[in-house]
Design a protein around this nucleic acid. Structure first.
Length: 298
DNA sequence: ACGAGCTCCTGCTTGC
DNA sequence: TGCAAGCAGGAGCTCG
């Protein structure tokens, strides 16, 4: 499940391979992944063919390639199982190949950009660029509601934005994990890194956010940032073949996970057995001793 | 305005 | 053995 570190690994791979290349053609194998395209699936080709890719950007789990003219971007969300692969033109198509972009490099050589997605929760869309409400560079207009992510300089500890977000979190009665998963507050954290951050901060995910101190919220945000920095250094987390980088290589952070997926195994801090629970309709893993359930929940 | 719940989708696993 | 149900879950949407 791609979260911030995995999407950043892909962004960085794209940044080294595709800027300067022109999009020569679009081949759609599954129109479903273009369901968010304004004007319908057919509009994608009209908006991107003939244009040159100028850069690869990311906020949270959203990825976009800017196009020459800097008025439009090709927005990519990987959903649960999306992959972006840079492939040789001759390569045999992948079973779950949904969209193929034919690229032409500046030196005249050809390469393909594949959007592969088994479960098709992901999508592609050519979207106009607009101003960033959080003060950064232009972003696709369909994602202006997405909050800043912990890798953004504006969100460093002690910054005004960080303090504002800390207050916003503590104004809510929702469980802290629900807020971590809410991409409109802070983006980039998904189910895996939320559980890891909460384990590190010794907090139960169902703890109402308004009952946390500013210092504890800060500790949770820092833990989320730290675990994602470490995961990025390992190339991301690959549970199965569903997450790979643009060259098709998996990441190696799974072996460093302390909570997620470790039900029945000892807590690396205290030895109590990690438990799996359902929270918000998805699985949560925690240490029953380090992360005590809040008193009045359930 | 906020939050809870539903929905999209495929493939692997589980149970009868 | 074969089939159906269960499960995985990001984020946009609807509804209260």
């Amino acid at each position: 499940m791609p979260e911030l570190p995995e999407v950043e690994t892909i962004r960085s791979g794209l940044a080294t391979h595709v800027p300067g290349s022109a999009i020569e053609g679009v081949e759609v194998h599954a129109p479903q992944v273009l369901r968010r395209q304004d004007g319908g699936p057919g509009a994608l080709g009209d908006l991107v063919v003939g244009r040159t890719i100028t850069g690869a950007h990311r906020r949270g789990k959203f990825l976009w390639l800017t196009l020459a003219g800097e008025d439009y971007a090709l927005l990519i969300h990987l959903g649960m199982s999306g992959q972006v692969l840079v492939r040789a033109r001759e390569r045999e198509p992948h079973r779950h190949l949904r969209v193929r972009l034919a690229l032409r490099r500046q030196d005249g050589s050809a390469q393909d950009l594949w959007f592969v997605d088994q479960r098709m929760f992901g999508y592609l869309a050519a979207v106009p660029l607009g101003p960033d409400p959080h003060g950064g560079g232009p972003i696709p207009v369909t994602m202006t509601h997405i909050g800043p992510d912990p890798f953004e300089p504006a969100l460093v500890p002690g910054s005004p934005l960080r303090r504002r977000i800390n207050r916003r979190i503590r104004a809510s009665t929702r469980g802290i994990k629900a807020i971590l998963l809410d991409q409109q507050v802070v983006s980039g954290v998904g189910n895996i890194y939320a559980d890891e951050a909460l384990w590190r901060a010794r907090v139960h995910g169902a703890r109402p956010a308004n009952r946390l101190t500013a210092g504890k919220v800060e500790e949770i945000l820092t833990a989320a940032t730290d675990v994602m920095v470490e995961a990025l250094a390992a190339g991301g987390t690959s549970f199965d073949a569903l997450y790979v980088d643009v060259a098709g290589e998996p990441g190696y952070f799974e072996r460093a996970l302390a909570a997620y997926g470790r039900a029945g195994q000892p807590c690396l801090r205290c030895g109590a057995l990690i438990v799996r629970e359902t929270y918000l309709g998805r699985s949560s893993f925690r240490c029953p001793r380090c992360q005590r359930r809040p008193a009045r929940t359930r």
